[in-house]
Computed example of a mutant assay.
Amino acid sequence: MLEILGVIGTDATARDLRRQIEAAPESERGEVYIDSRGGSLAEADRMLELLRPHRPTALIDTAHSAAAYLAVQLPRRMVYPFGELLIHSAWRCDGRTGDSDAEEIAKRNRMMAAAFVAHSRLTLAEVETLIRGESYVKADEAVRWGLADGVVRF
């Protein structure tokens, strides 16, 4: 099983994921365990590109922020009964400041919204509401809203 653990872009990188994929037999590339408090959207995009050819099932423990954005774009998503996703506005743009930050944050929010709408049963208005708040989504809500396909059963 592949793993995305920790902060995306710091603790978990596309380079690390590539190493995992290369080292894992094909039979172990079908699932990716996610326990991440978020991180870089750009790094999440790089990780997603590495994962797409393997079409893994996301096993979601904690998927906050960039990790939720990554997880919902995988072909199958299962969330642990105690798992959660966190959806919120982008809040930092790699240390830059000023008007360009506001524009970049708006761009990232649109990118996240498009991903959540495309891979759930939520409308754009509903996703925008989630993004504006610090929206913790528990397992049952994730399934009801189409952000996850089911709950992991033990």
Rank of each mutant, 00 (worst) to 15 (best):
H88T: 13
A114T: 12
L59R: 14
G133Y: 03
A66K: 06
Y69R: 04
L48I: 00
A139Y: 03
G9N: 10
S40R: 03
R77I: 08
S36E: 11
A67D: 06
D45R: 13
S89Y: 00
S100I: 10
M111H: 15
F116W: 04
L51G: 11
A68S: 15
E141V: 04
R92I: 02
L48E: 11
I8W: 05
T129V: 06
H88Q: 13
E103F: 09
S135Y: 01
E84K: 07
A114N: 10
E31P: 02
Q20G: 11
P75M: 05
Y80G: 02
P25G: 15
P56S: 09
A44Q: 04
A125F: 01
A14C: 11
L74H: 03
A139K: 03
V152W: 09
V72T: 14
V7P: 00
L59Q: 12
L17I: 08
I87Q: 08
R153A: 12
A106L: 12
L147M: 12
A68T: 09
D11I: 03
T62H: 05
A106M: 08
M1Y: 05
N109V: 04
L74G: 07
V151L: 06
T97Y: 01
R55Q: 15
R37A: 12
M112V: 05
R96T: 13
S27C: 04
S120D: 11
L59E: 08
Q73W: 00
N109G: 09
A44L: 05
V7T: 14
S89W: 00
L17Y: 08
S135K: 00
L70P: 12
S100K: 07
G39D: 09
L70F: 06
R108D: 14
D99C: 01
R77A: 05
R18G: 06
L85M: 15
L50A: 08
